[in-house]
Design a protein around this nucleic acid. Structure first.
Length: 218
DNA sequence: CTGAGGATGTGCT
DNA sequence: GCACATCCTCAGG
């Protein structure tokens, strides 16, 4: 019973799941989509989880695979909004992205961490680890747990094998979201384009250094 | 808890 | 060659 502060009651079995996110959801500024994907549900086959950490990438900044234009590898990054962009990282792992903005623009949200909700036995088997916090707490881990493969690259998130849903009952409060620099990159390191649900135990790193705002304390 | 190093495929400086 | 949008294991404090 994962209760996240700032949230309506979680979907414990009953139908708190809204409709699949439509193409129009993705056809917006990648930074907006990266924030709004927090709390949404990811479903592949019998596995289900809640997105707790994302990063935005855009061709106008040099950390993005599409920065030097369309190449065979990042072809689907330039596809229609709502397309899956799955690529191999470090020779071993996969990373799962959600293509955003207009077709022809290289922009996507990397899903970095998910809170496991269903299909947990399958996730444990695929991952070879037991701890709930270790199943999907990283971009490579969640692809393994959800069995997201390179074959999913270019598929539709609206009606394909990988699906995303909104929760009915609203989004996380803005105050529940922390922005921080992206992880594992060496260019454009200062852009605060990583977004986390601050209270989640399922992040890829314990917690981004919270912005210290004078006078803010509780 | 932290940091170092290896595994490994692909696409480029 | 080398640089990766990573993860695991091991050594040390």
């Amino acid at each position: 019973m994962s209760t996240l502060s700032g949230w309506a009651a979680p979907s414990s079995g009953s139908s708190a799941i809204g409709p699949p996110l439509a193409e129009s959801f993705y056809a917006r500024d990648v930074l907006v989509v990266a924030r709004e994907l927090l709390g949404c549900l990811l479903q592949v086959g019998d596995t289900l989880g809640r997105i707790v950490e994302t990063e935005a990438y855009h061709q106008r900044e040099p950390a993005c695979h599409g920065h030097n234009g369309r190449t065979p590898r990042c072809r689907s990054l330039f596809g229609p909004p709502g397309t899956a962009y799955v690529y191999r990282a470090y020779g071993i792992h996969r990373c799962f992205n959600v293509v955003c903005e207009d077709e022809g623009v290289g922009a996507a949200v990397l899903v970095r961490a998910v809170e496991p909700l269903a299909g947990i036995a399958a996730m444990r088997k695929r991952r070879g680890v037991e701890r709930l916090e270790d199943l999907c707490s990283g971009p490579g881990k969640l692809c393994q747990a959800f069995a997201i493969e390179l074959e999913h690259d270019g598929t539709s998130l609206v009606d394909g094998p990988i699906r995303l849903f909104a929760l009915e009952g609203g989004r996380p409060r803005a105050s529940a979201i922390v922005a921080a620099p992206r992880i594992g990159i060496s260019r454009a390191v200062d852009l605060p384009w990583r977004f986390c649900l601050a209270e989640s135990r399922f992040l890829s790193r314990p917690r981004p250094t919270p912005p210290q705002v004078a006078g803010t304390r509780d």
